[in-house]
Design a protein around this nucleic acid. Sequence first.
RNA 1: CGGGGCGUAGCUCAGCCUGGUAGAGCGCACGGUUCGGGACCGUGAGGCCGGAGGUUCGAAUCCUCUCGCCCCGACCA
Length: 578
Amino acid sequence: MRWSQFYLHTTREVPADAEVTSHQLMLRSGMIRKAAAGIYSYLPYGLRALNKLTAIVRREIDAAGSSELTMPAVAPAELWEESGRWEQYGKELLRIQDRHGRDFVFGPTHEEVVTDIVRNDVRSYRQLPVSLYQIQTKFRDEIRPRFGLMRGREFIMKDAYTFHADEASLDEAYRGMHDAYCRIFEACGLDYTVVEADTGAIGGSSSHEFMVLADTGEDEVVRCAGCGYGANTEKAETGSLPAPPAANADQGPDAEAQDVATPGLATIPEVASFLGIEPSQMIKTLIYTSEEETPIVVLIRGDRTINEIKLAHALGVRFPVLADDATVKRITGAPVGFAGPVGLAEGVRVIADHSVKGMVGAVTGANQGDTHRVGVTPGRDFEPTAYADVLLAAAGDPCPRCEGTLELFRGIEVGHIFKLGTKYSEAMGCTFLDAEGKSHPMLMGCYGLGIGRTVAAAIEQNNDESGVIWPLPLAPFEVLVIALNPQDEAVVAAAEEIYQGLAEAGVEALFDDRKGRPGVKFNDADLIGVPLRVVVGKKGLAEGNIEVSRRQDREKHMIAQQGAVEHIRGMLEATTTA
RNA sequence: CGGGGCGUAGCUCAGCCUGGUAGAGCGCACGGUUCGGGACCGUGAGGCCGGAGGUUCGAAUCCUCUCGCCCCGACCA
């Protein structure tokens, strides 16, 4: 491709509305252009990178035994009503009507459509398993799109769905997809980790996320260096925390609880500092409400945070939210800041995190304004309705699986695989007959991989102050040939010859044949990040030499003009196998 | 949806507080000198100052409403 004919416009200035590196670089190097918040055009240079990735994805997912299809982006509301998600999915689901006023959705994911297809074609266990995938544009009306392609509203996703007669078959497919994803992300040169994840709105029994480690990532994950345990903090478990010393230890081990005046001290740090204790020696008492439940009291160690997703699971509700001041007052009889587990009204459910269990002589609110209670011991002074794991994991917590310690990382979720079980097949009547002729809902798995997000993540991880440094497998072009002195006929002719030679050899080359000064071309070359740069200049050419360098390390060396194409191919070969 | 910020030339921004004929740099076009890391000189094109109302003799500037965009939070494959 000749640059003079290629639609590639770089910018020198950093666009005002981009903050993260990958977003800035994708805009500056002419890969994407914003049409609206979270909605982008993929310009030719960016599209080439996306196409590189989708080719890798097709190769690996095909190899995992899945068949590609394309489902409609716009699906009838009836299918979504059947699965129940027309009601459940909420505002993120873009709903549209046709001219007759019929309801449709712009698909954010395709469980309904694919289940509808399979239930019509597949009747027997003999026809299972089935594995289908597509690479297609999705739409999710995100509350807050951000960071360019990282969280778009319209985005390209590879989504695969599998259908099975039994658990073993689902496990096998799940494993196969897991391994295919690993190969894909490795090919992209990504530093990633696989973690256990919450299943969220999609539902199902088990799921793993593929996280690219990056400070700009929107997710937090924990990982144990010892045993390799990894999980999204939404889901992460911890080993049991060592109990802190009693706050009233100076009064003897069995000292009775007593009230102390804490005028105006409504927060944990204030009370701890006033009493000269650590926040960990307190029990935090929070009142939660939800659509489904009456208010519930939740207890956790004073220095720790509730994981509301875990709490939702523990309570069996969808969105627990902190109660408003009036509700707190009604349940505890005290203003916010003085709630405690002792002396609550009869019948109030109290859920205590495991971190509270071993505590002795702790400090809690006294359910009375300006008063706290010192020396409270669970099991002696109060008994929670139940203990549950509602702890938000933190760096330094003990690993739940070994003697190790958890570390905290930020990550970009580039892939997510789920075992769905029978959630959709049951709701939509996607059944098969077993060997005895009995009907069962199929077991399902679904497997998502963000195409644009993966490319963005690759840039996020591979760049320097001058621009992108493409990993070769994703690079829009493998080689950039620069005619450094476009006014010099010999230079242009020599560059042209190398470019042609590369093209004939099947190398994807971009030929910078623009009329422009060397500095501009060098800076553009760095910005767009093509892995191999070939510079044909007047000086080198006078000695029969051209210069080649890798974007990665920028180490330049001169090679003979004769046989240059072969030399360059050899360098690419070496990079591929390295 | 709550909080914060921003909409002026293709891009990055100044001008706004204190109302008085719309600016700079980059980019673009033309001419000339240059030509291995974003050259220089000259000339030129380019803006309904996001939109609508209002105040005023006069509004980019003050007021009201509205639309869009970015960031934080809540939320979310």
